[in-house]
């Protein structure tokens, strides 16, 4: 497995896309924190204010993770990959791991970078990271990024096509999960079980009415990712490359 991890690491970092993604994710997230910090008024700046922009980073990382696999299909390097390592499950798990680790790193840097930036601009004692909830809100970002990357690789493997995968990965969390609420009656219940909604409850704390606590929320989000990944692996093993 270490061999495969090394292979996928070389593959990822010898193209420009992870660098661009990291740059964009950090720039947008931290830049947004700076904007919020600079314009803040009325009451002290809080930890949560510094994290308003993390969704930018999340979406960029999601796109990057999907591209890590869809570009392999687009340029047919997936065939070279499966030729070098015919055990498709191992290859794809290694790829997912490498992408998820990178996503986690980007997430942590983005979250702490945002917090530091906001703190440097207009920090006070209220901005200290003290409680468990504070830590989850900042340090937890990396975990959510990593799990999102797993979902993105899985969707990318299933769809095999950049435009389709990216559309699904952006329209789903940004639009569909919110539109579900509009369904009278059951809508709110469905919304409670939507993966990205649940993930945000891990970060921002669950409202009392939510079905799960923060850590259970993360577990559920991870479970969704695992199911998608297993489905993707099964399909990739069955399909012609």
């Amino acid at each position: 497995m270490t061999t495969l991890l090394a292979t996928e690491r070389i593959k990822l970092f010898t193209t420009r896309s992870p660098w661009w993604s990291a740059f964009l994710a950090l720039g947008l997230t931290i830049g947004f924190a700076a904007l919020v910090g600079l314009n803040h008024s009325g009451g002290p700046l809080l930890v949560e204010h510094s994290q308003f922009g993390t969704q930018f980073g999340l979406m960029v990382v999601s796109v990057m993770a999907a591209l890590a696999i869809t570009t392999e299909y687009r340029f047919a390097t997936i065939r070279a990959t499966f030729q070098a390592v015919p055990k498709r499950t191992s290859v794809l798990v290694a790829k997912t791991a490498v992408v998820a680790i990178l996503a986690a790193v980007i997430g942590e840097v983005a979250a702490f970078g945002s917090w530091l930036t906001a703190y440097a601009i207009d920090g006070g004692p209220e901005m200290a990271i003290t409680t468990g909830a504070d830590w989850r809100m900042v340090a937890g970002v990396g975990l959510v990024f990593a799990v999102t990357a797993v979902i993105a690789v899985a969707v990318g493997t299933l769809v095999r096509q950049s435009a389709g995968a990216i559309s699904i990965l952006l329209i789903w969390p940004l639009l569909v999960e919110n539109l579900v609420v509009l369904i009278p009656g059951v809508g709110a219940n469905i919304h409670d079980w939507m993966p990205f909604t649940v993930a945000s409850r891990f970060l921002n704390g669950a409202e009392p009415i939510a079905p799960m606590g923060p850590w259970a929320s993360l577990a559920y989000f991870t479970g969704v990712a695992a199911v998608l990944l297993v489905a993707a692996l099964a399909v990739a093993n069955k399909r012609d490359a």
Partner: peptide, 10 residues
């Protein structure tokens, strides 16, 4: 099999 099975930016 196909010489074009490479990533163009690698």
């Amino acid at each position: 099999l196909d010489a074009k099975w490479v990533h163009p930016n690698r």
